[in-house]
Design a protein around this nucleic acid. Sequence first.
DNA 1: GATGAATGAGGGTTCATTCAT
DNA 2: AATGAATGAACCCTCATTCAT
Lengths: 189, 189, 189, 189
Amino acid sequence: MLDGAAAVFARDGYEGASMSRIAAEAGVSKGTLYNYFAGKAELFSAYVHRDCSRTISLMLDDLARDETPECTLRRLGRRIIEVSLSAEGLAMYRMVIAEAEKFPELAATFYAAGPARAIRHLSDWIGDMCAQGRLRVDDADFAAEQIFGLMQTRLCIQRRLGLIDGASESEIDRVVDGAVTVFMRAYGV
Amino acid sequence: MLDGAAAVFARDGYEGASMSRIAAEAGVSKGTLYNYFAGKAELFSAYVHRDCSRTISLMLDDLARDETPECTLRRLGRRIIEVSLSAEGLAMYRMVIAEAEKFPELAATFYAAGPARAIRHLSDWIGDMCAQGRLRVDDADFAAEQIFGLMQTRLCIQRRLGLIDGASESEIDRVVDGAVTVFMRAYGV
Amino acid sequence: MLDGAAAVFARDGYEGASMSRIAAEAGVSKGTLYNYFAGKAELFSAYVHRDCSRTISLMLDDLARDETPECTLRRLGRRIIEVSLSAEGLAMYRMVIAEAEKFPELAATFYAAGPARAIRHLSDWIGDMCAQGRLRVDDADFAAEQIFGLMQTRLCIQRRLGLIDGASESEIDRVVDGAVTVFMRAYGV
Amino acid sequence: MLDGAAAVFARDGYEGASMSRIAAEAGVSKGTLYNYFAGKAELFSAYVHRDCSRTISLMLDDLARDETPECTLRRLGRRIIEVSLSAEGLAMYRMVIAEAEKFPELAATFYAAGPARAIRHLSDWIGDMCAQGRLRVDDADFAAEQIFGLMQTRLCIQRRLGLIDGASESEIDRVVDGAVTVFMRAYGV
DNA sequence: GATGAATGAGGGTTCATTCAT
DNA sequence: AATGAATGAACCCTCATTCAT
């Protein structure tokens, strides 16, 4: 049922989605939908809560640390970009942004599950690197956000606007390499 | 009439806006609205076309170049952030992102009027600086996008998610200074 | 349009009536209904306001006074009963009673247009009769209400419960005569 | 289970009540409700049948006769008014009146349990009084209905319309005394 | 015997759109 | 050129009812 909601919400957005279509997509009756969720808003909320972390957490799984700083940055950067470009990540971003005024709590959830987690992860890692004398950073949080910003360049912007449908490995690498280069020049020892 | 549309679309989004409310806001009848615009989609399109450049072009006006590179970067960076945080800029971004699938042409228009213009401007400036030997940059376009990305950090992300309602001068300066510092360390001579 | 509402409300009651049926009965679309009335409640209110006085005011028109007290009482009594037994009067009574909690204002309107008017009329007339020395009444208002109560006997009660569908002239006369007899014995000089 | 139905029906009326709320109020599942009652109509019917006499029979209990006629009339009159003003009596009256068309049998039940019983009781008593030479009445049934009508004055009407929420002892006494006075003047020896 | 998940028809309401005036 | 009355499809949601467990 949440899967049906996911499909329709992702395709039509919150306002554009109709409970009828969601019910049809889920293979249940409208009545059943309302037996499980108090209304459209609650269904939307449940869907975002479930898929937010599910989708975005792919970003941070299995990130080993025993590598060179550049390697770690590259791997994480690629993940960030891949998630941002994925159909699910894109749909989630669009909907949460569009309905942020109406569902402030969902926006907070999205931020915590996605950007905030990635940034915190990066920040911790930067702290480690500094302690090991491999980076020189004053404000680790801020530097982490900068990496994040550098990754959201070109591809992510254009994808969100529907100007591109995806990106090749080499295009992603180009962005990642550029970001890592800038970062290391700025903060490397 | 487009002013009425602007007010309602910005407040309610595309799906949430109703032709009735727009007509009321504009002080004309629904019939008149339809005499000038074929339908809601076309009205939306006309509104975005007009306000896109109008809002976003504030970003680039009066940007003199006879300063130090840091000064120029700072001024432009502040502009970018201010527009992104402004009510109009935010509303436009949300709507265009949300409806990018349905109105691909509007997304292209938005991109051209906003990010693309800023990036081209930056790119040209970077070319000049390189010619003057004050910067060392291989791919000027890419570097320009990186500046843009570094500016969209922290404040812009949170604003789009409704987590903050604005930012103080000093918060903006913090982001701008951080971005300029990283950029100059990476690309300064 | 109010005529359609009247027909459906009278037949199905407020809760039982549907805007669809009213629209069909009125020969307009549901949309048109909502162009004229903000909602079901307002339509109901408009209908009651219009038909309340329209229906009930038949009760008091053309009541000349230059007769014997008995004659006047009889004529008015017959009117009260006739209205109470009429299809319109009955439907109005049922609906207003049923929805009094939800539409207190309508109940007040109904009371003012119907019972209160009849009672005030009677009270004034009783005052005149006392001044002429033809009746001896302490509390004219109260005596008026008593006449009203005496008229609502047997036929009205049974009609409201659907136990009878109407009454013959002689049945009405029986109630009226009984009421007038009791009243005159109690208050006549 | 009938208690739950009683609470909800009395509060929301027949149309306004929902089987879900009744089940919740009764603390059973909707399925169970349908195991015991064929549907909403039958449940309503069962509720009215049970509570009709239960509520209204308070009217006639403990009415001793060994008093003066005025005393007896007063006691019975007070009872009639009290029941009519009570929350239960009022709710029952409203519902039965509103749904009389749809549930003619219930209206008959209500009439038999309430007004008819009171009237028959009064009629019998009037017969006794006549036999004892303390009253002079031609048509005992009709006179009984007149007493009933005289009691339903002022307070009952206004209560049914929601114009008042109850009445003080003295207000009730006023109505009762007035009714008894009229009746005794009309029919006393 | 009791449950509660499932249904689908219908509820009131909104809305983009049309068209005669 | 401007209007506003009219439409009907679609909206979200509620409900009486059924039935496998």
